[in-house]
Amino acid sequence: MSTQSHFDRSRLEIVGPADCLQLLGSVPLGRLVYTSGGLPAVRLVNFVLDDDTIVFSTASGDKFRAAERGDVVAFEADEVDLERHVGWTVTAVGHLSVVSADEVEALRHSLPLHSWLPMDDPYLLRLGIESVHGRRLLPWAQRPGSASSRRR
């Protein structure tokens, strides 16, 4: 079975949902996009992917309050090779929630959770992924419209 690549108008390869989850699981750092005081806020967080759920630690504050409210948030992770001009980006959207006290210990033992910031008694937050989209920047010769792709 051959796999047909699909591209957007910018000639970025569209990444399917299963591959998006695989890419998300391959990096330890992403950006949580949420609302704070009626304005967009973006924060770097260490995270792990647990099936189709993003889990990370936080102290009390704006992220925690967004989770308590069950806000819809976005989460973005990427990997870019600046020398070769290739890479990918994945954006997930869903409702943010606080992991219940009953689940915290089990998750701490089963997932490689850590934070680069020191926190006393951090909370665990969960983003249940409801939609996921990704794009991959391929080497120039593999993009549609390049001279070498027309010769194939």
Rank of each mutant, 00 (worst) to 15 (best):
D62P: 07
C20L: 09
R136D: 06
R9I: 04
L138K: 13
S57T: 14
P17R: 10
L117F: 10
E83H: 13
P28Y: 10
G25R: 10
V48Q: 07
G30Q: 05
A74W: 03
V72C: 09
V98M: 04
G134C: 00
W116V: 08
L29F: 14
F56W: 11
D51H: 14
V86P: 02
L137K: 14
G37L: 13
V45H: 07
R135G: 00
Q142C: 09
S100Q: 03
D19S: 09
V99S: 02
T3R: 12
S36T: 07
K63C: 15
D120S: 09
S131F: 00
D78T: 10
S10Q: 15
S10P: 05
S36G: 11
V99T: 07
A77Q: 05
S57Q: 15
V73K: 03
V80D: 08
D8G: 03
P139K: 03
S100Y: 04
A141W: 06
V73I: 11
R84I: 01
P144Q: 07
S2P: 05
D52M: 13
L82C: 04
L117M: 12
D102A: 14
R150E: 14
A67W: 10
R135A: 05
Y123F: 15
R43H: 14
C20Y: 07
G94W: 07
V33C: 12
D121M: 01
D71N: 10
R150G: 04
V55S: 05
D62Q: 13
S36A: 15
G25L: 06
A106M: 09
Q4P: 02
Q4D: 06
A66V: 13
G37Y: 05
K63G: 11
V99Q: 06
P139A: 08
R69C: 07
S148T: 15
D8E: 09
A101D: 11
D120W: 05
F75G: 12
H109Q: 15
L138S: 01
E103K: 05
